[in-house]
């Protein structure tokens, strides 16, 4: 067996367990490098007798650098760290190195959660999260981890300002908007009407920067719904952005002035909620034909739903 795996420890007493891919002609075999082949052979061996040792810990570190997606190694490593009573701060520093080398890896986040939970100290976390979000501002696992952390250590106070910074950098960063919603409503406390007003203002001013930005619109509508406030509250705002010209029974749009198809969609909802189905239908037709044509079928569906409902109540 080629012993390309180099370690500070002696492995003479361990008989590596070779990988059995199944049968004589297995599907999807991988031509591993020798060091990986040897190291995973030792891994299977030490795991089979649940060895708790420094060399096993070293082995997990080496394997993680060869294949950071190897979740079994991470799980074993966490067990070893606790059993050997290792310094967990040191572990967090080491994980940060792994994160920098493999920024797309997501196993580190579950591992970090396990370690930080035990360590019961979040002080390294926000700076590291921030560093990783600078590399990829929409990294799903990093944002999820941040939410766990905020809940676990009651860190709500920093969050609104942080999302503000991220949204300032890219007003279309939907992960940041989602996190903002979490920061406002996630705690489960009653949210005061003045905070709701602030959030509506915040979303509206973001929309004015980029009126087609779905993230800010979703947030605005989400806040209204969560606060049980009527969508009609933003009718004037939408009127301007959609540049609508209305009569009692019809709606048209100034083609040169409209800056947001979403505003027109929200208006359609508002008309519909008031049973002004003629006007809602006009808005949906405009969306289908001109301002959001790929969703033609959806707009037609909204229209026929409204017409059917009206017919049923008439």
């Amino acid at each position: 067996m080629p012993l390309a795996y180099l370690s500070d420890y002696s492995w003479d007493d361990v008989i590596p367990i070779p990988q059995d891919d199944g049968g004589e002609n297995p599907l999807a075999p991988i031509a591993y490098q020798d060091d990986y082949k040897t190291a995973t052979g030792y891994l299977r061996a030490v795991m089979s007798f649940e060895e708790v040792s420094e060399r096993a810990l070293q082995l997990t570190a080496d394997l993680i650098f060869m294949n950071p997606a190897h979740y079994t190694v991470w799980t074993y490593r966490a067990r070893l760290l606790f059993a050997l009573k290792k310094d967990l701060e040191e572990e967090l520093i080491w994980v940060e190195e792994v994160g920098r080398q493999f920024p797309k890896n997501y196993q580190i986040w579950n591992h970090r959660e396990v370690i930080v939970d035990k360590y019961d100290n979040p002080s390294r976390e926000l700076p590291f999260i921030e560093e990783m979000l600078e590399l990829d501002s929409k990294n799903y696992h990093v944002w999820s981890y941040r939410q766990w952390l905020v809940r676990r250590f009651d860190l709500w106070i920093t969050e609104l300002a942080y999302t503000d910074r991220m949204i300032e950098d890219d007003v279309r960063n939907n992960s940041a908007w989602n996190h903002r919603f979490f920061a406002v409503f996630g705690k489960g406390d009653d949210v005061s009407q003045s905070i709701i007003d602030d959030e509506i203002d915040y979303a509206e001013s973001a929309i004015l920067k980029a009126p087609q930005n779905a993230s800010a619109w979703n947030y605005l509508l989400g806040v209204l719904k969560c606060a049980k406030r009527p969508v009609s509250e933003i009718e004037e705002f939408c009127n301007d952005l959609a540049a609508v010209q209305t009569t009692e029974h019809s709606v048209d749009v100034d083609t040169d002035q409209i800056t947001s198809a979403r505003a027109l969609e929200v208006l359609a909802e508002i008309y519909d909620s008031r049973d002004e189905v003629d006007k809602a239908a006009d808005a949906w037709t405009l969306l289908a034909e001109k301002y959001d044509p790929i969703r033609e079928n959806y707009w037609k569906f909204k229209k026929s739903q409204a017409i059917h409902r009206l017919a049923a109540t008439a």
Partner: peptide, 22 residues
């Protein structure tokens, strides 16, 4: 390809996703 050949070493990153490669 996975039924006919050994996958090259750069597939090691999917070594914990063997069932998916199948």
């Amino acid at each position: 390809i996975p039924m006919s050949f050994k996958l090259p070493p750069n597939y090691t990153g999917l070594d914990a996703s063997k069932p998916w490669l199948i």
